[in-house]
Design a binder for these strands. Sequence first.
DNA 1: GCATTTAAATTGTCAGACATTTAAATGTAA
DNA 2: TTACATTTAAATGTCTGACAATTTAAATGC
Lengths: 244, 244
Amino acid sequence: MKIDPENKADLSAQIAEAIRKEIMAGRLIVDERLPSEAELADHFAVSRPTVREALKRLAAQSLIRTARGAFGGAFVNRLNYPDAYGQHITTSTLLLSMNAISFDVACEARYALERACTPLAAERRTPDTLATMRAEIHRQGQPGLSDESFCASDVTFHRALVDSANNPVLSYQLAGAVEAMQPLMNMITFTARSRGAILGFHTRIADALERHEAEAAQAALSELEAYTLTLGRDVMAARARPRG
Amino acid sequence: MKIDPENKADLSAQIAEAIRKEIMAGRLIVDERLPSEAELADHFAVSRPTVREALKRLAAQSLIRTARGAFGGAFVNRLNYPDAYGQHITTSTLLLSMNAISFDVACEARYALERACTPLAAERRTPDTLATMRAEIHRQGQPGLSDESFCASDVTFHRALVDSANNPVLSYQLAGAVEAMQPLMNMITFTARSRGAILGFHTRIADALERHEAEAAQAALSELEAYTLTLGRDVMAARARPRG
DNA sequence: GCATTTAAATTGTCAGACATTTAAATGTAA
DNA sequence: TTACATTTAAATGTCTGACAATTTAAATGC
């Protein structure tokens, strides 16, 4: 593990990158203890605060965890699903919110990915995931529901659909796509009419999954996509001419 | 922006989380300058090194960037595609390598996602993406190619397939799935026979896309998935009984 | 043999200083 | 007036040294 004296980047960034590479390459394995901060400072010929900044960078990416006390220190962290979900969702959400990505593009990506889960979901859906979907459908029919709550329920419904595929890697990948759309969806005002339409699609999807009918579920998803697209386009058009 | 004096977590983690929430909620917008380190230290009633550790955490997630000099400081960073790709790939790769995820599960997720891109790719593929795929197919047929190079070429081929869909959000989401599989694929020894088979599937996929035939491309992908699965299972079986 | 205390190691935090970088402000000469 | 060099101020980057808090192992006492 070395750093380049010619490199003009921050020392802490270089050190973090050097350790990150060791972890990615498997030369530092899960639960292995890194040298103490003082030893790392010696090794890289920098001060302890610089080492600490490097370690905090790695901790922010869940690559290491630290423990105080004797026999404490920094340990290579086993990246678990909740942490991975969180990181993916943060990254995806910011990517969408900061880059003027059109509603159309985000929508297309999300529904394409969801359709990818549908054949597996139709095959493997459980009473549990079906119950979640039914419960959210019921919630979405409540009259007093705020737009935010409706959106949150929508996310829960679609995550249950994804989880039905019973593939944790797929669930992880989809979490970013589904959650990152929520800020965009939150801009939509869901009228009673549009809620009714969405409810209808959700019911068709749940029904199709329950009957193990993948193609029917995919068809309903595609129609939901088209409908969501019109809702989103209306919002974007209204925002484009605010005095309209 | 406040931190909880009752909270026993690291101060730098709390401060980073407080600022992260401001960014995620849009209360700190792109290119906005954060207060200087000294001002933040005052605001949170902590020392400057603690503030710096917090800022390094955020920098590690590409949420901020820093600039030295007068009128420098920490600025909310516009998360760009390359940074988002990198973070997603790091997270996905570690998730797969550290959690004893079976080859089957990873493989299933990856090909399900790729099939999701295929209809769009068949519609929108360009001479450019087709040329990339043909070039990689040609490379994969070279006799002297190492297993690593073959895998790298495989990744390039599949990324070209994904990029053919011409949806950057989809490309970003798929990058994690495709790249994270590479360490698993690298464990496979590609015999001349298996290379020939894979080459055949790749050719069928490229041909189908060229002719805008989505279903033929999906069918070839599914067969490639089944074939990859058998290769992976052989490796896993051999690893399970090392004295075999 | 068990409970308690002590010691040691390590991270967390702080204070203060200096180095380096950057751009604006200032000064100077053509 | 303009162009260029210099100064200055503000900010991050880095270092030193210290102390606090935490945790475990070992030592001690009963």
